[in-house]
């Protein structure tokens, strides 16, 4: 499977009437996860988050593709 770069966010049981809503729901939750943390704590949260999500995705070829794109923009 290739890395999916199309909008793909959704929430089971929740009906979205506007295309922007699921992405905005996610982004708000993401920023809220970091609320009141120091920069160091935030870096740790991000690392943990990536590890959790990587395991969930499972397919290492997808992860390699994502890691490469991510590194290009550093």
């Amino acid at each position: 499977m290739a890395l999916n770069t199309q909008p793909n966010l959704h929430e089971p049981g929740k009906r979205h009437f506007r295309a922007f809503s699921p992405g905005d729901d996610f982004y708000e939750a993401l920023i809220a996860t970091h609320r009141d943390l120091t920069d160091e704590q935030s870096a740790m949260v991000n690392a943990r988050l990536i590890l959790l999500l990587a395991n969930h995705i499972g397919d290492i070829s997808v992860l390699r593709e994502a890691m490469q794109i991510a590194r290009e923009g550093a």
């Binding site: 770069t5 909008p7 982004y27 935030s42 870096a43």
Partner: peptide
């Protein structure tokens, strides 16, 4: 700072990737 990093990451990805465009607000 982390919120700004995410914001700039979204903007950086938006040119190429449709999913990131949807997050630009």
């Amino acid at each position: 700072a982390v919120s700004k990093t995410f914001r700039n990451a979204v903007l950086g990805l938006a040119e190429q990737f449709p999913f990131a465009r949807a997050l630009v607000n």
